Simulated scan of single mutants.
Amino acid sequence: MATKISDALKGLSRELRYEPTTKHIRALLDGVPVLDSRQAVVVWEPRRVVPCYAVPTDGVVSVLSPAETAVRGGDIPPMLHPGIPFSRHSAPGMALDVSAGGQTAAGAAFRLDDPDLEGYVAFDPGAFDWFEEDDAVQSHPRDPFHRVDIRHSSRHVLVSSSRNVLAESTTPIMVFETGMDERIYLPPTDVNWDALVATDSATLCPYKGTASYWRLARTDAGGDDAGGDVAWSYVNPLAPAAEMAGYVCFYDNLVDVKER
């Protein structure tokens, strides 16, 4: 019987998973080295959507000590999405504080209690400055089984909010990302910028870079919320996503995105 790969991967999501990498991995705390290893593994705790790095203890160049608290067990949500902190662990192990250069990152490491990962310590992606070889890593390690495919399209796309046209284009780019819905990004020249106002929101993606956000310029007669973010763009994306620079994507659950 044939296996649908995405279903098989989802079936593994409740297990502790790892994948070795040959990259030279380093992490710094306020400029002071915390770890330095060429034997790192990419690790997903059970129900974690995004991974972290774990390294053997001989690659740790900081001081590790037992943490006071760590959240584990049945109080963890069914799926640990990116916004759920590293300190909420779903695998057996011990939470650790990390000290280097007079600074301490509380609970920023986790010694895994698993025979296949014996001697490995996982580290919080958000607590340190990370490098793969000599390149900085944003947000969290890239999932080696995750793809982002960018394709140019001639779809005719109209974006509106009540009676207000927010954008219309026949030259969008389509972004197909593993495990996510397809996204339609529109050229900035096809966006009605008078209808949008930039906000202070920003998010980091290890595949695309830093996203900037916009809200509606006013509340339309139809009752649209002018306060929430409705669109985003990677103004200066990472090199693999360079084609997306300046293109704008709208939340299709907040405004009307139609293909004509």
Rank of each mutant, 00 (worst) to 15 (best):
Ser212Val: 10
Ile184Tyr: 10
Arg218Ser: 13
Ser162Trp: 09
Pro51Ala: 06
Ser169Gln: 10
Leu166Tyr: 05
Asp225Val: 02
Met94Val: 14
Val61Ala: 07
Thr69Ser: 10
Trp130Ile: 03
Ala106Asn: 02
Met180Pro: 01
Gly83Val: 14
Pro77Cys: 02
Arg38Ile: 02
Tyr234Trp: 09
Arg17Gln: 10
Val55Leu: 09
Ser169Asn: 12
Arg163Tyr: 00
Tyr53Phe: 14
Ala217Ser: 15
Leu96Phe: 02
Tyr207Cys: 01
Ala198Arg: 15
Ala106Val: 11
Arg47Ala: 11
Val43Leu: 05
Arg147Tyr: 06
Ala54Leu: 05
Leu12Asn: 00
Glu168Lys: 10
Val60Asn: 12
Gly83Thr: 15
Met1Phe: 14
Leu117Asp: 10
Ala217Cys: 06
Cys249Gly: 09
Gly223Leu: 08
Tyr185Phe: 15
Thr69Ala: 08
Pro33Trp: 02
Met244Lys: 04
Gly222Ala: 12
Tyr53Gly: 01
Tyr207Asp: 02
Ser169Thr: 14
His89Thr: 01
Asp36Leu: 09
Val191Thr: 06
Val257Asp: 07
Ala217Pro: 03
Glu132Lys: 04
Arg142Asn: 07
Val159Tyr: 04
Trp44Asn: 04
Pro33Gln: 01
Trp232Pro: 05
Thr203Ser: 15
Gly209Asn: 11
Gly222Pro: 03
Ile5Ser: 08
Asp252Val: 03
Thr21Pro: 00
Leu158Phe: 03
Ala8Cys: 08
Val61Ser: 08
Gly223Ser: 10
Gly73Leu: 03
Phe131Ser: 06
Asp194Gln: 11
Gly228Gln: 14
Glu132Gln: 13
Gly107Cys: 01
Ala136Asn: 00
Gln103Arg: 14
Glu68Trp: 13
Asp113Ile: 12
Gly209Arg: 08
Ala195Gly: 04
Ser62His: 00
Leu80Val: 15
Pro33Ile: 02
Ala245Arg: 09
Pro46Asn: 04
Asp135Gln: 13
Asn236Gly: 05
Pro237Leu: 07
Pro33Gly: 01
Trp44Glu: 03
Leu29Val: 09
Val235His: 07
Arg111Trp: 07
Pro115Leu: 04
Cys249Val: 13
Leu196Met: 08
Ser153Glu: 14
Met244Glu: 04
Arg17Ala: 05
Arg183Gln: 14
Ser87Arg: 07
Thr189Asn: 05
Thr203Gly: 04
Leu158Ser: 12
Ser162Glu: 06
Asp224Met: 12
Arg142Lys: 11
Leu35Pro: 11
Met180Asn: 12
Arg26Asn: 08
Thr199His: 08
Val235Tyr: 04
Leu29Tyr: 09
Asp7Arg: 15
Gly11Ile: 06
Asp190Lys: 03
Tyr120Asn: 00
Ser62Asp: 00
Asp225Trp: 05
Glu182Tyr: 08
Ile84Val: 14
Lys258Phe: 06
